[in-house]
Nucleic acid binder design. Structure first.
Length: 227
DNA sequence: CCCTGATTCGC
DNA sequence: GCGAATCAGG
């Protein structure tokens, strides 16, 4: 299995979300934990909780590992040894740890939206499903911006099943096929696309200015999840 | 031993 | 560049 653009992006996303290398390898499929770590290392995104800290045991269905209390370091020393070549914007990231349910520690200026327990799961293609309101898409693709639904369609209330699909509703899969709660987004589609505006943003990442090749058509259903 | 990530080093 | 082997730690 090779590292395609998609897989690399998935790796990045999951890695930054705090998933363990094992989980990432498992989701991507076809790669070992070491491969993931090695690739992550090579990509330059390395070492969050570098040493293995806070081993919150979760063998059966691994959950997000316990967050590491980031040491407050208001005076970051200039990194001389860091190549920093691959990262255009290495802004000081005070990364909020993606704990499953964060005890109420509301930052004063935190975004008011998306306050509850964050849902983080891996979709069929290995993409990250996030709660509404925490869009972390690196590159907002800026699709045709007219007509934004903005209201959750009642469809999702009782799960949009495969049979409910039609040309007008978003086919973005939610959860894993086969799981009891697997369903589809069901939002009104972005006209001309199979997905709603939000999921178009995920499916069609803004692409390179030049005619850089775009080998495979985008997710959601990526490669086989070999497990 | 289980797990974790980091690093090395032959390919 | 890749990743198994190895190392180091919880």
């Amino acid at each position: 299995m090779s590292w395609t653009d998609e897989r690399i992006e998935q790796l990045r996303s999951m890695w930054e979300k705090g998933l363990t290398a094992s989980q990432i390898a498992d989701e991507l499929g076809g790669v070992s934990r070491n491969a993931v770590i090695g690739k992550a290392h090579r990509l330059g995104l390395k070492s969050r909780p570098s040493p293995v800290k806070a081993t919150e045991k979760a063998k059966p269905a691994r959950s997000a590992p316990a967050p590491k209390p980031a040491a407050p370091t208001p005076t970051p020393a200039p990194r001389a040894a860091e190549p920093a070549s691959a990262r255009p914007a290495p802004a000081p990231r005070a990364e909020p740890r993606p704990a499953a349910a964060v005890p109420p520690t509301p930052a004063p200026d935190a975004a008011p939206k998306a306050d509850g327990p964050r849902i983080v799961s891996i979709g069929p293609g290995g993409f990250i499903r996030q709660g509404p309101g925490d869009q972390q898409a690196p590159i907002p693709p800026a699709p045709p911006r007219r007509l934004v639904p903005a209201k959750p369609s009642p469809e999702i209330a009782d799960k949009t099943s495969l049979l409910d699909l039609n040309d007008r509703i978003c086919r973005w899969p939610m959860g894993h096929p086969g799981e009891p709660d697997f369903h589809f987004c069901g939002e009104a589609v972005n006209p001309g696309f199979p997905y709603c505006v939000e999921h178009c943003g995920r499916a069609y990442q803004a692409q390179l200015p030049r005619g850089t090749r775009r080998p495979p058509p985008p997710p959601p259903f990526g490669g086989p999840r070999v497990r």
